Simulated assay, not measured.
Amino acid sequence: MTDRKAQLAANLAQVEERITSACAAAGRKREEVTLIVVTKTYPASDVRILHELGVRHVAENRDQDAAPKATACADLSLTWHFVGQLQTNKVRSVTGYADVVQSVDRIKLVTALSAAAVRAERELGCLIQVALDAESGERGERGGVAPDGIEELAAAVDAADGLRLDGLMTVAPLAGPFAGRQRAAFDRLMEFSTRLRAAHPAANMVSAGMSGDLEDAVAAGATHVRVGTAVLGVRPALG
Rank of each mutant, 00 (worst) to 15 (best):
M1L: 10
T2W: 02
T2S: 14
T2Q: 10
R4T: 11
A6K: 07
L8V: 10
A10T: 15
V15N: 08
C23E: 07
A24M: 08
R30L: 00
R30W: 00
E31F: 01
T34D: 03
I36T: 08
V37Y: 11
T41D: 08
P43I: 02
A44F: 13
I49V: 08
L50W: 15
H51A: 11
V55S: 00
V55A: 01
V58Y: 14
R62E: 12
D63H: 12
Q64M: 11
P68L: 05
T71P: 03
A72G: 09
C73P: 08
A74L: 02
T79S: 07
V83A: 01
G84R: 04
N89Q: 13
K90I: 13
Y97R: 03
D99R: 03
D99E: 09
Q102P: 10
S103D: 10
V104H: 04
D105F: 15
R106K: 12
I107A: 07
A117G: 10
E121T: 09
E123F: 05
G125H: 05
G125A: 04
I128Q: 02
V130L: 02
V130C: 02
E135L: 11
S136K: 03
S136C: 01
G144S: 03
A146F: 05
P147W: 12
G149W: 08
I150M: 03
I150L: 05
D161S: 07
G162V: 01
L163G: 13
D166Q: 10
L168A: 05
L168R: 12
M169R: 01
P173T: 12
L174Y: 14
A175R: 14
A184S: 01
F186D: 09
L189N: 07
E191S: 00
E191G: 01
E191I: 01
R195N: 06
A198Y: 13
H200Q: 05
M205P: 01
M205E: 06
A208L: 00
G209L: 03
D213I: 12
E215G: 13
A217Q: 11
A217N: 13
V218G: 14
A219E: 10
A220D: 12
T223R: 02
V227T: 09
P236H: 10
L238W: 14
G239Q: 15
